[in-house]
Computed example of a mutant assay.
Amino acid sequence: MSEGRGSTLVQILLVALCLVAFGFAIAAERRRSVGIMLRDERTNETYCSYNSDVATGYGVGSFLFLLSSESLLMGVTKCMCFGRPLTPGGSRAWVTFLGAEACLVAGATKNAYHTKYRGMIYAQNFTCETLRKGIFVAGAVFIVATMILNVYYYMYFTEATNTPASHKANRASSTVGMTGYA
């Protein structure tokens, strides 16, 4: 381990897990469910039909890889949750991590809601609801920000823990007189 930079293996694992999570988030955005209006020939009513549910799986996969990355960092630095902070403050990556996870969970849930539970909804005068564009992209942006902040946090954390604390000089007696004049 080089002085002040931390383990290269931990940094590589952090980046690799975040990049896989980023890839899954982009894949989820590209494979979002799309609803089309169909007409039932028997009853002459329209309903929404949604294509496959692949984006939900990609969103969940992205969520799990990002969670693994954050768990690795917190396990290595022994700073679970909001544990022992560095001297002006702790990891700022928690905000981006929670933002990314929220986007990924919301996107996967909304996507699954349409494909799994609303496979056939009878619609009158409205279009088929689909997942709004950009939910998974927002998660991907947060993933990249989390990755950058985590790598910097790990580097600064190892530098702070490896640097010896400044020692006070051991003096036999004080140089400042504290007794009054009599």
Rank of each mutant, 00 (worst) to 15 (best):
E29V: 01
L149M: 14
T109R: 04
Y152F: 14
G177A: 13
M155C: 06
G99R: 00
A140W: 06
A21G: 14
A25D: 03
G139S: 01
A160I: 00
N51S: 14
A172G: 06
F82N: 10
A182R: 11
R92H: 02
E41H: 05
A172V: 13
S71T: 15
C48M: 05
T130W: 00
C128I: 05
A100E: 02
L67I: 02
R84F: 12
A182K: 12
A172K: 12
A138L: 15
E70F: 10
T87Y: 09
T163M: 06
A55E: 05
A93I: 03
I12C: 10
C128S: 07
N170I: 11
M155H: 04
N111L: 01
I135W: 12
F157V: 05
F82H: 07
T8K: 08
S49V: 07
Y152I: 12
T127D: 15
G75P: 06
S71Y: 11
A172W: 09
A25N: 04
N111F: 01
V105I: 14
A182M: 07
C48W: 06
A93D: 07
S71E: 01
K116D: 02
D53F: 08
F142S: 05
A165C: 01
G35L: 03
E129M: 03
G35C: 03
Y58A: 04
S68P: 00
T127G: 12
R84V: 11
N170L: 13
A145S: 11
I148Q: 00
R132D: 08
Y50T: 13
R32N: 03
G35I: 03
L73Y: 04
R30G: 06
R5N: 07
D53V: 05
A106I: 13
T56Y: 13
T43M: 11
T179N: 09
S69W: 02
